[in-house]
Each structure stands twice: as C-alpha cells, then as structure tokens.
Amino acid sequence: MLRAIPRQIALILFALLILGPLSVVFFATLKTTQELYGEPLALPATPDLGNYARLFESENMIVYFLNSVVVTLGSVFLILLCGSLAAYAISRMGGWVAASLFAFFVAGLLIAPQVYMVPLYTIVDALGLVDSLLGIILVSVAFQIPVCVMILTGFMRGLPRDLLDAAFVDGATEWTTFRRIVLPLTRPALATVATFSFVITWNDLLFPLLFLRTDVNKTLPLALLEFRGQYLTDYPLLFSGVIVATIPIVIAYVFLQKYFIEGMTAGSVKG
C-alpha cells in the first residue's frame, strides 16, 4: 500500500490549511497586542481572556448578539411556517396551477440579491422597514423561500397518500391534516431547511448592511465589519469579536453536523 502515504500527506496538508488560519486567529485573541506583534505565530505565553473582557466592556456585544438571535430565530420560524404551508398547498393542488406556483417560487433561485437590491431598498423604505429587525427578517425569508419550497414540496409529494385519504374520510380538515399528519412526517426535511436558514441568516452581511442604520440594531456580521475599520491596530480585540460571533454556529455544528452538511448541500445544489 504505497499509495497510502501520499494519500495521508494530502489529507493532512489540507487539514492544516483549514486549521492553520483558524488557530492563528484563536490564539491571537489570547495574546496582548505587543505579544501578537512580537511573536505572531507563537502560542500565547500566558493565555488570558482579557481581550474578551475588554470587548464586552467597550462594545455593545450583547446587543449585537441578541439582534442576531432575534433575526435568526424569527427568520427560521417564519420560513418554516410559510414554506411548509405553501409546499403543502402546492403538493395538494395538482395540475397546471400547482405547476405554475412551483415555477413561480423556484424561479427565485436564479436571482441573486445583488440584482434586485436597489428596488428592494425603495420598497423596504416605503414600508417604513429600514433600520428594523422585522425588515431584515422579511427580506431574508423572501430570499430563502425558493430553496425551502423546493425541498419541502419535493418531500411532501413523496408522502404515502393512504394516510391522508384516511384522515379525510374521518372528516379531518386541511388544517388538521397538515398539522397532525403531514408536518410530523416532514420533520427531516424541516430540519434540513431550518439548518440551512440558520446558517444563512446568522452569517448574512448584505441585508443588514443595506437596511440597518443605528448601532443598537446591528447584527454581529455588520458589527464585525465596523470593528474592522475601528480596531485595525487592535487585532486581539477584533478577533475576540470574530470568535464570539462564531461560537454559536460551532456548537450547533458539533452536535448537528449531519443536518448542516445536508442543509448546506441541498441549498447549494438547488441554489
């Protein structure tokens, strides 16, 4: 097995390429600024969390963090609600109506936000939703509806029909059937959509950059972008912000890798 050695080398090299920048950044947050400039690549001599303390003292980190939480949870909830209702209706309707509705939603996959951001701004402005977290939620949900409807409709169309027929014979309404039978069966697809939506919304810069103005409304990525200008001479503080913004997603990834990989791949193949 001579081939085993080059294979191991290739795998380890790429692992180092991924881990290198991540660990340099992490260790930078445990150093003082002088230490970072003196020994940029060395491990911190006496690791301490002073930079994190400074960060939380000098910045509204908790506010940014909560804003990100509100926007992300709001978007995930709303996308699951709107998406599953729409997907249920489409999968129940059949015929050309269902086909055109499906095409209408899925056409959104072909359109990048940069294409429509200018008219979008004027609409959001006219509705008085500039500088509001609700505005960000609605705009993010609209952007994610195409992927969501595509995944959920595909899944619901594959559900066994007997179950639904039985429910209707027993006199169940559409709402009961949706709520009691279809939603529980769709759980795996809902988990995929939720994970995709969580990652996209938590990380998004474009929509907050376009619509959020005041400091107390900023989400983490937007706050980090401003730190970049502000703390270009204070790397340890800047990167403490990066770590704080990244921790929730790392924790979720450790426990839910399978859903992350499925969600991001489904989103990518289809988006």
Partner: peptide, 17 residues
C-alpha cells in the same frame, strides 16, 4: 395556506426583481 409565502416572496423578491 399559500398567502403568506406569496405575499412575502412577491413583495420582497419577485416585484423588486
């Protein structure tokens, strides 16, 4: 059932596009 998705997607994506 379709209404919320159509409204949000229409107002914040289809119309601006």
């Amino acid at each position: 059932f379709l209404l919320p998705a159509v409204v949000i997607y229409g107002v914040f994506l289809a119309v601006p596009a």
